[in-house]
Structures are given as structure tokens and as C-alpha cells.
């Protein structure tokens, strides 16, 4: 029961302190709010991009064309080599006859043209359709396949994939940079808020020490104060995440520009993001106050 009593007392002290230094607390809360709004937008954007990338990844295929003069053993050998590559998730094989049949089915023109060619004259080739595990490594995987004997050509939409991967990773890096910078500024502000609280309560801290309060009892209210600032600072961002994303989703009908760029469904997504935002707020508050306590609370 004693730890609960001490915790209750610490929370009471922390709330009192937030109210007592209201203007300073408000400055910290505002800064946390701004940071968390940007963090929330970054999380939402990043998860949606991830979702959209995954959708494209599922569609992305490496097409491996086998040399025309290869026999059945050569094809088996190619298959064995493809199987060995770690980034290969799965593959399917289509002989040129399969391809021909499929094309003939699809169009009357193809049917006529392909009927005029025998197997030797046909420009069609046996193919493997390879799906990869990590799209970022698709280029390396294609290069490895290209080196296998009897492989004629390898295609995977090179230019488009490379550009997309590098664009996403640059956006990701810039976002992380901004978020880290803002978190650092917020921690700095919280350190200063708690520093002032510590200095305002110097007398009280001295007396606490004299009457036998343990170090944790003295420090805890300041740590909790930081966490409360973080919690209060996350209220507005959570509201923005919840109502903003719902409105955004409804406005665009769940898609951005084309059906390919599908947005994540709001539920339970917004609640998960809200929880993460609250968690980050409390954590940032705690880190800031713990730093201030370590630096300025000499007991």
C-alpha cells in the first residue's frame, strides 16, 4: 500500500506543480503538441506509403527469359539456381508453348501470327516469373539471375522500381530527421520547465531530505510532471489524428489519385496511431524530466 500512497502523493504534487507554473507548462505543452502533430502526420504518411509499397511489391515480378537453344536439363539447372537465391520468395515456370497458347487465347491477331511460326522461328522464349521477398534488393536479385547460364534476358521494370524505392527512402529519411530534431527541441524545453520547478521547490526538497524522504520519493514528482506535460501535449494531436484522418479518408474515398494508392482503413488504424502518439508524448516528457532531475536535482 505504501508505494501506492507515495505514487498518489507524487501525482498530486506533479499536478499542483503543472498548475503553479502554468505559463511555463503551457509553453512545454504547446511545443509537445506541435511536435506530436508532425510526428502523427509522419507516422500516418509513412504507414500509408508502406501499405502502398507492399501492394506494389506484391505485384512486382522479375521475368527471366531462357535462351532459345536450351534443353530441358538447362531449364532445370536454371530453376535450381533461382531456388538458391535467398531473396526469391516464389517462382513459376512457363514454357514457350504455354506462352503461345495463352497469347493465342487472348487475341485473334496473335493467334494468326503465332500459327505461322514453327518452334524454331518463334520469338517467344521459355520464362520464369520470380517474386522477391524484399523489393529494395530486386536489382541485386535480377543481376544474380542474369549471371545464370542459359538465361537470355532479365526484366523487372528497372527504372521505375529504382526511382520509387529511392524516392520513398529519401522521404522517409527527411521525415525522420525532422521528427528527431523536433523531439530534441521538446526535450530541451521540458528540461527547462522541470529545472524551474526544481528551483522553485528547492526549500521543500531540502526539508524532504532532512525528514528522511528517499531519493526516489524526492525525484518521482518531477518525473511524473514531465509525463503529465507529455500526456497533455498529446491531446490535440490525438484529436487531429482521429478526426483529421477520418475526414481525409472520407474525402478521397479511400484512394489517392488512383486505385493503386489505397489508404489504410481508419479503424483500428487511428486508435493505434493515437496510442503511439500518446506513448511518444509521455516518453518524451519522461526523458526530458529525467534529464533535468539528473542534472539539476542534487541530493
Amino acid at each position: 500500500m505504501k508505494p501506492f500512497r507515495m505514487l498518489g502523493r507524487s501525482i498530486r504534487d506533479a499536478v499542483k506543480s503543472v498548475i503553479r507554473n502554468f505559463s511555463l507548462s503551457l509553453a512545454s505543452i504547446s511545443c509537445i503538441t506541435i511536435t506530436l502533430i508532425i510526428v502523427a502526420v509522419a507516422i500516418i504518411a509513412s504507414l500509408n506509403v508502406q501499405n502502398f509499397t507492399e501492394a506494389i511489391e506484391k505485384d512486382m515480378t522479375i521475368v527471366v527469359f531462357v535462351d532459345n537453344d536450351s534443353d530441358e536439363d538447362d531449364v532445370k539447372e536454371i530453376e535450381k539456381e533461382i531456388k538458391k537465391i535467398s531473396n526469391v520468395e516464389k517462382y513459376t515456370y512457363q514454357s514457350k508453348q504455354d506462352v503461345k497458347a495463352k497469347m493465342q487465347e487472348e487475341s485473334e491477331v496473335f493467334n494468326t501470327v503465332l500459327n505461322n511460326w514453327n518452334d524454331e522461328e518463334s520469338p517467344l522464349k521459355d520464362t520464369f516469373q520470380v517474386k522477391v521477398k524484399k523489393i529494395k534488393r530486386i536489382k541485386q536479385t535480377a543481376e544474380k539471375i542474369e549471371k545464370i547460364d542459359n538465361v537470355a534476358i532479365v526484366r523487372y521494370g528497372e527504372g521505375m522500381v529504382d526511382k520509387m524505392v529511392s524516392a520513398f527512402s529519401s522521404v522517409e529519411k527527411v521525415t525522420y530527421g525532422i521528427v528527431i530534431a523536433l523531439v530534441l527541441v521538446t526535450i530541451f524545453l521540458i528540461v527547462n520547465t522541470i529545472k524551474l520547478t526544481i528551483s522553485a521547490r528547492k526549500r521543500e526538497i531540502k526539508i524532504m531530505r532532512l525528514v528522511g524522504a528517499s531519493n526516489i520519493t524526492i525525484k518521482l514528482p518531477f518525473i511524473i510532471e514531465g509525463m503529465i506535460l507529455g500526456l497533455f501535449g498529446s491531446i490535440v494531436p490525438v484529436l487531429i489524428v482521429t478526426y483529421g484522418y477520418l475526414a481525409f479518408y472520407k474525402h478521397f474515398d479511400g484512394y489517392l489519385y488512383s486505385k493503386l494508392v489505397q489508404l489504410i482503413k481508419p479503424e483500428p488504424f487511428i486508435y493505434q496511431v493515437s496510442l503511439v502518439v500518446i506513448g511518444i508524448g509521455i516518453l518524451v516528457g519522461m526523458v526530458g524530466s529525467a534529464r533535468a532531475v539528473r542534472k539539476y536535482l542534487k541530493i
Partner: peptide
């Protein structure tokens, strides 16, 4: 004396016990 000016006499004395988690 080292008393807390914003707390009453009772609160000042009680402070010593509150700090050690007394009921």
C-alpha cells in the same frame, strides 16, 4: 526554522510523515 510558508502549521508537521509514506 525551515518551514514551508504556503502550508499551514498542520501541513508543515504532516509533511515529515507524508514524505515517508505514512497513512
Amino acid at each position: 526554522y525551515r518551514l514551508l510558508p504556503k502550508q499551514t502549521v498542520f501541513e508543515n508537521v504532516a509533511f515529515a510523515l507524508e514524505c515517508i509514506g505514512e497513512r
